[in-house]
Design a protein around this nucleic acid. Structure first.
Lengths: 345, 345
DNA sequence: ATGAAAGCGCTAACAG
DNA sequence: CTGTTAGCGCTTTCAT
């Protein structure tokens, strides 16, 4: 690592001039600036970001916390955060809580002391714990809203409404809904959306409860669906829906003839299974990018916006129901008219 | 952020005593240590890692570069790196090159100046470029070997041998192999392994060429397989294999009756498709964990090992062929005996 | 326009 | 055992 002193020596100037020539070129004569720049280039000099960070109090680093990298939803969010941060000249620290809410405060605190801003994706802790852990570090939430913190999430309630509307139009009148982690904010939002939409469309919603947001959780959910007598299911996410599909097939329950299945997220695998999964598409990478935009607005001085945005801005990105075979029209059998509506109601 | 000075004041000692009491408790009297520790706890003091980094020349941060977070292979590696680094008290910077080898040197350089060590997963650049970019920062490679740098990768050659052995045992005599990015080191290794195994088993290997390591690449590969007259395919990775499966199904080519398909990696989705994918399982998270172990041995002083390990240690983790339906025995039809062997050879 | 000096928060060498 | 001093690499007054 070459330091500013070596550059100064080579250019025959002082270290402060080196700093100035590089940071505020206009405050230095053209000729010395040229000399400094050349010396710097020849030595491959790059100011040490750690030292800069110490002096300026800004590290030009952002922190990202996710519950699980192996969940494609968060992989995409990570990608989005990463891309936008880099474009703005920020490095990104990451931490994976392994879906363990208890570990979150420590992880957040560990990140917080090294970064200028924090992105927390679907934190599982309570509002109070999250607020305590971030302290006074600028923070943006993803897929979670909470008073006092800006956030960007998909419109979960609307997504659920679209899903139920779709199922209703296909003739379903009794629909099961499986939730993810108890502590999932978006899960709660969807349940609320489901209740509203249920009334609007006149469908009965059966809450199956809370399950692991993975393939394995779906295996369990599938049996509940069958037992519930519902003719359709909306799963917490695509991974869970895939587990449902698998178990249903194993039990000889046909999809969509006997039961229709809707996922959430539209991660890549949704199209790779058979039948392809109908799902509520979230703008995955955009969640991450938007979060960084919000964060940098705060980190780099609120003065950018003349009128000043509200302290905790809440962004809701639109979602889109993507209809595929798992709720589709079955050629040979015609529209799957659920027998459930005859049995119940 | 509370600083050491405030703790010192509250405890009635000097800042150096605060530092000592926390870093080397035995060099401080029991009573003052107690006072300092209590003051620190009361103020919620945590030494600023940035300042520590500047002073000590160690940031207690590691850098990780991957070609694509959304590729589940790298998501798992990231998870492994993350977990091990955290356990050792290191934070992790990440960067995603988007499979763009040209961007790599800049990304690596950007990471290098902030970290104590680097993990480079499947870097796409040439040896010279990689070595230049890392400079003198301790570095470990994942899924890539190169003179001068330690590395941990799966035994790709053996994996390919297991795949071909399996296919040979099932009666296949003409097997297509599709590679990933030209610059992929493991792809080259597998081709080499294929050549060896081909001779050993007496199977003919048809090299289809280089394709995108995604689902979309597989769609293209499928047509090549059919055109090649091979009765089986080994794809570069599971994602590609899934694309092949999809396209084959669309063309009415049955798997495994008409063509058998083998993937690589055993990422989660391999079991979610129908037919389930036979694949060469890599110890994904372990790749990441082992890389960090190697790295920390270097970063924290080679003296840990009495005799001193070789400067560039090369670790090859074993792989395991997992046989599933995509090469499986077909109940109704018996063993899929490829017609290819009658047509050719 | 430039250099000297101060200091970000911390730790290590050196006295005492 | 503890306080004082110095300095990591950088930016920023403050003089000149």
């Amino acid at each position: 690592m070459t330091s500013a002193r070596e550059v100064a020596q080579r250019a025959g100037v002082s270290v402060s001039t080196v700093s100035r020539a590089l940071q505020s070129p206009e405050r230095v004569s053209a000729v010395t600036r040229e000399r400094v720049v050349r010396a710097a280039r020849e030595l491959g000099y790059r100011p040490d970001p750690v030292a800069q960070g110490l002096r300026l109090g800004r590290t030009r680093a952002l922190g990202l916390l996710v519950p699980d990298f192996e969940n494609p939803f968060f992989a995409s969010v990570t990608k989005g955060v990463q891309a936008r941060a880099r474009a703005a000249g920020y490095a990104v620290f990451v931490a994976d809580s392994d879906e363990d809410g208890v570990a979150e405060p420590d992880l957040v605190a560990g990140l917080a002391e090294r970064v200028d801003g924090l992105v927390l994706a679907s934190p599982r802790s309570t509002d109070r714990v999250v607020l305590g852990a971030v302290g006074d570090v600028p923070t943006v939430l993803v897929s979670r809203e909470m008073p006092g913190l800006p956030s960007v999430s998909a419109d979960d309630g609307d997504g659920m409404a679209q899903a139920l509307g779709h199922l209703h139009a296909l003739g379903h009148r009794r629909v099961a809904v499986a939730t993810g982690p108890e502590s999932s904010w978006s899960g709660a939002r969807r349940l609320a959306g489901a209740a509203q939409a249920a009334e609007r469309f006149g469908v009965e919603v059966v809450e199956l409860g809370s399950f692991a947001p993975h393939f394995s959780g779906g295996l369990v959910v599938a049996d509940h669906v069958v037992a519930s007598g519902a003719s359709a299911l909306v799963a917490f996410n695509d991974l869970m829906a895939l587990g449902v599909l698998d178990r249903l097939a194993a039990r000889g329950v046909r999809v969509p003839q006997d039961v229709s299945v809707v996922g959430f997220d539209d991660v890549g695998v949704a199209t790779l299974v058979s039948p392809a999964l109908t799902t509520v598409r979230q703008p995955l990478a955009r969640l991450g990018r938007t979060a960084v935009d919000l964060l940098l607005a705060r980190v780099e001085g609120t003065s950018a916006e003349p009128t000043g945005r509200p302290q905790d801005e809440v962004v809701r990105l639109p979602v889109e129901l993507v209809s595929r075979a798992s709720t589709g029209v079955v050629r040979e059998a015609g529209l799957p008219v659920p027998g459930a509506s005859e049995v119940h109601s």
